[in-house]
């Protein structure tokens, strides 16, 4: 039994109102180039009554992160708190992580000469990257390091309906369980995104 926190996002599909606030906040806070969306809001089963719902999707920081497994240059690392990050100095922009990811989280800016694909960019859970914490390099390459500042990631911080919650998997699951219980939805299965493919 360990006390490690396992950081996870959860977007409550009962609460998400498709406002795209998290998307805008993320792109703005991390000063992402045009065309890069670390977080996306999608609507599923659109038009089907009773089944339609919206969720906000970004990197799910999988425990067995497929991107981490397939990377030919091994530029990924998983922090002790479960946040999956990558080293942009090592990344070669081959795209393997995108092919392996079930959520379409990795994205590639076309910033090189002749529109050549640059290195990969993905959600960092606002935890920066391998560059020195709070350095200009970290800020430019990976965006804000709000986790080191003791703040909640930008997307979850601005979510007006508190649909997007982030934190230790056990706590996030407890919140979701309490919400479901309050609605009389009955006992929920324990949450925890463990394996990407199953």
């Amino acid at each position: 039994m360990y006390e490690y926190a396992r950081m996870k996002f959860y977007c409550d599909e009962d609460r998400c109102i498709d406002c795209h606030g998290c998307e805008v906040a993320c792109s703005d806070a991390n000063e992402l180039p045009v065309g890069i969306h670390r977080r996306k809001v999608i609507t599923l089963n659109e038009g089907i009554e009773g089944k339609e719902f919206s969720v906000s999707i970004a990197c799910m920081h999988c425990t067995d992160a497929p991107c981490f497994q397939v990377c030919p240059v091994e530029c990924f690392y998983i922090r002790e708190d479960g946040i999956v990050l990558h080293d942009k100095d090592k990344c070669i922009g081959c795209g393997y992580c995108l092919y392996a990811c079930p959520f379409g989280a990795p994205q590639f800016p076309r910033d090189g000469a002749f529109g050549i694909r640059g290195v990969m960019d993905k959600c960092t859970m606002c935890a920066g990257g391998p560059a020195p914490t709070f350095s200009i390099k970290e800020r430019e390459l990976y965006g804000q390091n709000r986790i080191a500042e003791g703040k909640v990631p930008m997307c979850a911080a601005i979510c007006s309906t508190n649909a997007l919650i982030v934190g230790d998997a056990a706590h996030v699951a407890a919140i979701k369980r309490a919400r479901d219980a309050a609605k009389g939805k009955g006992a929920m299965t324990p949450y925890g995104w463990d394996q990407a493919y199953k």
Partner: peptide
């Protein structure tokens, strides 16, 4: 939590 049950997710 690192080995939370995999069903559901």
């Amino acid at each position: 939590p690192n080995q939370a049950p995999s069903k559901g997710g």
